[in-house]
Design a protein around this nucleic acid. Structure first.
Lengths: 226, 226, 226, 226
DNA sequence: AATGAATGAGCCTTCATTCAT
DNA sequence: GATGAATGAAGGCTCATTCAT
């Protein structure tokens, strides 16, 4: 078994376990068992449990972002389109169970209960994306909008998106299962959040007026456990 | 020391500790030490550590809701006013350090990482408040707005609010400290979220157009540690 | 089993093991096993392994000193007598196998390889005895003898005594077994060291001249393993 | 890197580490790191950690004895001179920090806590030196002095010398730092021990009478850490 | 011949829990 | 009824050693 092989196996084994149980509850024994490696490997490859945790969080970031990158928009693309795609990308990353469903959960855990991995995550990962969102909003806001207001609007967009992941359990408890799987797909929610935001910015008719939003043709069921 | 006395002391001691460290990281020894009672008391009064945790979460709910109740609106109060007050109440509960600052954190913890206490919490605590919000929105939405859309809009409001508590660490990492204490008070955020929502519903001019929002006169600084 | 009972059992079990193997080589498991108590007892009663070690060293001091106290001399006792008894007491403590043979070894270990227990040992235990020796020597030295010289002479006395314990293994390797058991008893060595010292101080005829020293009537065999 | 090169590097790296930390506390990793060789080298070149330890002790013996040999006295040299030089050589070896200061400490460690290396050490190293001392003493003792008495006197000389190394920590705890660096140099102590011994043998005036001992002109400070 | 990766036994310690008092 | 003493299971980690290369 090669060097990188063991490292990778450890990260892959640690991901779901850290995501499910948190740092403290996860045991190195369980992780090593699942990875099929020796108990001492974690200390050998990562120094200690905490370092493995941090690397696992970073790995989660990569696994989540890489397969669903933000589009590279050509010049002239309407900001409405960009916003729609930005929001959808965010939601797909968070709600889709396609790749490493544990990674989102691990990142959310880190957001609520920040460890040393969080600062790094915020600066390297969240800040560039937030700046990207602000740039999109800038195209739709008057030039004299103060910076703090732009950030507040940005947080409103982000807040609406992450809510479904952070508080997925509560959403599931307040909504029928049928509605959940039909109306809370990444696609539907992206429509809704974009629409609401654009309406707030005066770029669309207000909610409830025009608002027929076509349901997704191939709904991706939302699995609140991920 | 009376029976109830010890129980109460244990709950009061457990609250901040569970909130800060989580269930696993908190030790019964520390809780008992802070409560000034015997180590065996937890097992004696609550059965085991987990039962104490659940009771502590319920206690947090009571402590958080009681001192900041939602207003009882007289008939004829404009829905815009109601929404503003609803949002502000939510934010004050979550951001203010007035009473039991740990309780919000404990509830957020429970939301991300639901234990057996979560379902109960959702039904008894979140559902009535969510219904109250939906009733307010109903007054501003066309009668034929489908239920699922009303819920989505409701979640958008809630999502914007809880974001600052759930992801407080990330917000703090992305915003200057000066701006944080000036623009992210419960009052300011309530203004912003209400305004955005009303604009989206066509009840106010769009964001950025009229939008001068007066800052709070007595800003309550947001303490991200709470 | 009472509180003090367990503490005492642990100290008694730890003594020989620490003495034989040193701090690092001794395992808490072995100590607890020999004491017949739970593995966690050491942490419960002493905090950690190191604290147990320090207490064991102190216990060794007590066990060694208590059964063989220095005499309380009446006024007018000749300094030659006092010196003889001082030296003999030192040697009996170090060479006799009567009580806690491990304790001397543990103390010697601490002397060679000082841990945090050593300073305390030196101040509380060695210094008073050293002062006692200096007082005896003072009676035989001219009043103008500088302090540093008195201390050097004191160390010469002590050095001769402890040598047989510190370097017992080497002595045993250089001397026939028969001579070892006959001439290296505490009694004989006390005679020799006292005689040599007194001769050096001009209080006795030089070595080799008068020197008939009666052998001990009941020789205490020297057990170099202790 | 040649075969012998690696062996030598390992021995040189192991010396100070074994001397400072003892056999158990020293780790092969640290030794190999300092030697700049592979972790597996110790097992490859020496079989295991213990074998390396034994070889290191033997190396210490060589390093200590070679640069400070005993003088080869011409016939007719006074035994007082010889004793003085013998004692001084012993003390210089033990107290000087000139060459391989660790080696003395390692040997002392071996004396207190004999391993398989000790017997060899005693026979090959200590016995010849002890015989040399006895020969010097013979010149000053009556011919009919019994062997066992000559050995006792020899041990008294040796005991006084090694005391400052074996119990250096205790000496340092009982003596002011100023006095320590001024009066406990190899030169001063050699004067003192020789003087005391000669006085005991009737070859010099008793201590305290004539005894002005000139301090060393170039005092070699005693470094108790060596 | 010589190594770097990998191992597993064993270390000290912590913890929630129990039980005699 | 309530406690302080005591427990044992399990935790992360260190280390000398081994083995394929």
């Amino acid at each position: 078994m090669s060097h990188d092989d063991v490292r990778t196996r450890l990260l892959q084994a640690a991901g779901p376990i850290f995501a499910e149980k948190g740092f403290q509850n996860a045991t190195v024994r369980e992780i090593c068992e699942r990875a099929g490696v020796n108990v001492a490997s974690i200390n050998y490859y990562f120094g200690d449990k905490e370092r493995l945790y941090i690397e696992t969080v970073k790995e989660a970031r990569r696994l989540k972002a890489d397969p669903t990158p933000f589009p590279q928009w050509a010049q002239g693309v309407a900001p409405e389109i960009k916003l729609r795609q930005f929001v959808q990308t965010l939601l797909v990353r968070m709600l889709s169970a396609n790749t490493a469903p544990w990674s989102t959960r691990l990142i959310m855990r880190e957001i609520l209960d920040p460890t040393s991995a969080c600062k790094e995550l915020a600066q390297e990962f969240f800040r560039p994306e937030f700046e990207m969102l602000l740039a999109i909003l800038d195209e739709m806001l008057p030039a004299d909008t103060p910076d703090y207001r732009r950030r507040q609007i940005g947080f409103s967009v982000i807040g609406q998106c992450v809510f479904y992941r952070l508080a997925g359990g509560v959403v599931a408890a307040l909504v029928d299962e049928g509605e959940l799987s039909q109306r809370y797909t990444a696609h539907d929610l992206a429509n809704h959040i974009t629409h609401l935001t654009l309406a707030a910015l005066g770029r669309k008719p207000p909610l409830g007026i025009s608002g027929a939003i076509a349901p997704a043709r191939h709904p991706v069921p939302h699995d609140p456990r991920n």
